[in-house]
């Protein structure tokens, strides 16, 4: 049997800035460490990825998120982009939630590779380690 690169499936569900930041950080560092990473952004986690919300930094956050914004450290979009630039990380929007919100890929910040359904995502992430946030 051929050796398969270790792979990570990251499912982002929450719109909390801290969870997005932690998930993007783990995914990005995993990609830079040689793992193949697939990120599925679904439900409320899509909200901060919408251009309107992102541009207005209209995020939901607690005390740590407040410091993330106050200290102007690079946000989840930057972490994901760095992972793409220096590793293998693909980011997918959930077709169901996007349809419900009547959002298209072009309404979102430019980190999404595609908008797909859960069956396609599961097909990509066979045998992967799964992290849900």
């Amino acid at each position: 049997m051929s050796e398969q690169a270790p792979s990570l499936a990251l499912i982002l569900i929450s719109e909390d800035l801290e969870k997005l930041h932690a998930g993007s950080l783990v995914g990005s560092v995993a990609a830079m460490s040689g793992m193949k990473v697939n990120v599925f952004v679904t439900m409320n986690a899509l909200v901060p990825f919408h251009k309107d919300n992102f541009e207005e930094t209209d995020f939901k956050y607690g005390v740590v998120g407040k410091e993330i914004l106050a200290k102007k450290i690079p946000l989840f979009d930057h972490l994901l982009q760095e992972g793409k630039d220096f590793g293998e990380i693909n980011v997918y929007g959930c077709a169901l939630a996007m349809d419900l919100m009547e959002w298209k890929k072009e309404d979102m910040i430019d980190v999404f590779d595609d908008v797909i359904g859960v069956t396609a995502f599961l097909g990509m992430t066979n045998n992967a380690q799964v992290i849900t946030m």
Binding site: L25, S28, V29, M32, I73, P74, L79, E82, F86
Partner: peptide
Amino acid sequence: GTYCPGPLM
């Protein structure tokens, strides 16, 4: 002056 994972990146 950069926070984790800035130095690693």
